[in-house]
Design a protein around this nucleic acid. Structure first.
Lengths: 341, 341
DNA sequence: TAATCTGTTGCAAACGTTTGCCGACTGGCT
DNA sequence: AGCCAGTCGGCAAACGTTTGCAACAGATTA
């Protein structure tokens, strides 16, 4: 049915090995022969069969990209960047969605293992042990989680969380809430630790609410609990939850940022579109996707397992404002200072 | 390196063909032998090599999913649903992004053709001819576009657009704008035609502004042009543009829906989060993804090329309000009637 | 008792490539 | 004229499966 290397060989009067070399080792074939072969190949519409090639070379030129939830707006920019970057290097990308389920995740890696040259594991929910185990079956790069000995790309959310808390403290807030994400999330632990330490160091209070499924609904559902703590400022695990909370607070007649300030994390496309515009910590997801692909493709050459950390930045918009302990003057200056920092 | 069918055969004392049959035709092997083979396979961690299998069966158990822009929030729910649905049927999914470029699209289909059992082409930007041509290389299902003779899943945006225009007319608007999408989009043509016909039938005016790249920025950039037309209501090609327009209008001090009403299309996750909440036409993207996968997988069996149309519904929120020709009374009743319809 | 059938297994070819090896040819030197 | 090096292209094995065919055993039928 489909046109194979054999058809091209026959049509151009050479052996199949010559056709093969025309594509995979052009310098070994006479320029004249080469162009003749290329011409007939083109004319016949020949495309090398990657599966057959993979069988013998052991390289599939495919990579797997496993994410917790495609519909979570955090991931699409990462997926897009990774796919585009991979394709530029002649790799195709399997994308799969685990629905935040570690079991599905495990299955998926094993199912994909034989079909790819490596897998990008984004925000994995498995245990460290499981991941280390899998690494023996297939090259892995982990995104958004740090596991010693494993190549990884992480966003420095700790830094972002510290900046966010400092910003809130500078605005005069003393009673803070961290609206937590999934228990198995490395990012979640990082944020909690960094935010907690920063608040404590300043003698402020940080109540942790959670863990939570990181979607808008749980953010909204947490509004009651947040108000019950008496806190005046909230840092949420991600923008989705922050936005949900924002809406729920407004629905209850609570003014944001007048009565409560809200900060998100991720800077997803829409956090600048809600009203008030969300103050948030921007994470460079596209860059992370590209870096992870690079790391995975290099991995084959040497066994070097680097770990890349990408910086995050606080973006101050309109969902944060002065708190009850705000210095009477120069709040604007404070804010400005934080911005510049 | 990896464990093959041969290792399992040796370890369980049978021929490789028996091992093969244990997996691909269990009823042909003695239950006792079967369980022995399965046991050793399990113990050795054997997983059939899909590439090798594909080579001989001609079926890869992979499908390709090509979209115009992964980061466009319209697509992630579709991708997610398609992937999950495909996986349940033991298929893996290649996802690729064309960046709205027909040339990339063409390349991508050809590159993927040999590696998949079929391709889902979502909102393709190629010409009908090109697509028909490709169909000879690989089974295709087109989403969001109707091409005679090709299996397709479309959303009935025509219906949604008509409903939207009727809603605006009922509210008392007579000067409407359609903020158009990409020229090569089938959906765009459908909307324009349906909206135009409906407006004309009611003796109202519909100005078309475009074509435009279907992103938020162009929506915002169109604010000036929209105001210049003197129209009091706008239907946008998608929610992204509608939201961009919404923001830009508000930034200019134009009240929505007080002075201008805005309707979007798609009902992406965030259209309910902006203020005012966006009135929009909901398209069942997840269902479309599943239907397309089903269609593609069935296609192999018979050559039946159905075309599925999914209905769309107008969702009335707060970005639309009474227009200059509003009937003095009973606006609420009108609106209520439209809602029920 | 012989013939036929059924169920289970082994054998070997095939799928479309890549690649190490070897032979043939070319042209430049001596 | 003879030799050598270098270039080019053919040969065939290999990758990990599936599958048509044949072999064999035991059961059933005539």
């Amino acid at each position: 049915m489909a046109v194979t290397i054999r058809d091209v060989a026959r049509a151009s009067g050479v052996h199949i090995s010559t056709v093969s070399r025309t594509f995979s080792a052009p310098h070994l074939v006479n320029p004249e022969t080469r162009s003749r072969v290329l011409a007939t190949a083109e004319q016949l519409g020949y495309r090398p069969n990657r599966a057959a090639r993979a069988l013998i070379t052991g390289r599939t030129h495919n990579i797997g990209l496993i994410v917790a939830d495609i519909a979570n707006p955090f991931f699409p920019p990462l997926i897009k960047a990774a796919e585009t970057h991979a394709r530029r290097r002649d790799y195709h990308v399997f994308v799969a969605d685990t629905d935040e389920d570690p079991i599905v995740e495990l299955d998926l890696v094993q199912a994909l293992a034989k079909q790819v040259d490596g897998i990008l594991l984004c925000s994995p929910r498995m245990t460290d042990d499981q991941i280390e185990q899998l690494r023996r079956e297939v090259p892995l790069v982990v995104v958004n989680r740090l596991i010693t000995g494993l190549p990884a790309v992480v966003m420095d959310v700790g830094h972002g969380a510290r900046e966010a808390v400092r910003h809130l403290l500078a605005l005069g807030h003393r009673d803070l809430v961290y609206l937590a994400g999934p228990r198995s999330s490395w990012t979640n632990r990082e944020i909690r630790r960094a935010a907690g330490a920063t608040a404590r160091a300043a003698g402020a209070d940080l109540t942790v609410l959670g863990p939570n499924h990181p979607v808008e609904q749980t953010g909204a559902a947490a509004a009651e609990a947040v108000l019950a703590t008496g806190a005046t400022a909230v840092l949420a695990y991600n923008d989705l939850m922050a936005i949900g909370l924002l809406q729920a607070l407004q629905d209850r007649g609570v003014d944001v940022p007048g009565q409560v300030s809200v900060v998100g994390i991720d800077d997803i496309a829409y956090s600048g579109l809600v009203r008030p515009r969300l103050t948030t910590v921007a994470t460079p997801t596209a860059a992370a996707g590209r870096a992870a692909v690079d790391m995975l493709l290099q991995q084959g050459d040497d066994g070097a397992t680097g770990q890349v950390t990408l910086r995050t930045d606080l973006i101050i918009r309109n969902s944060t404002g002065p708190g009850p302990y705000a210095p009477a003057v120069a709040i604007d200056a404070e804010v400005a200072a934080t911005v510049k920092e």
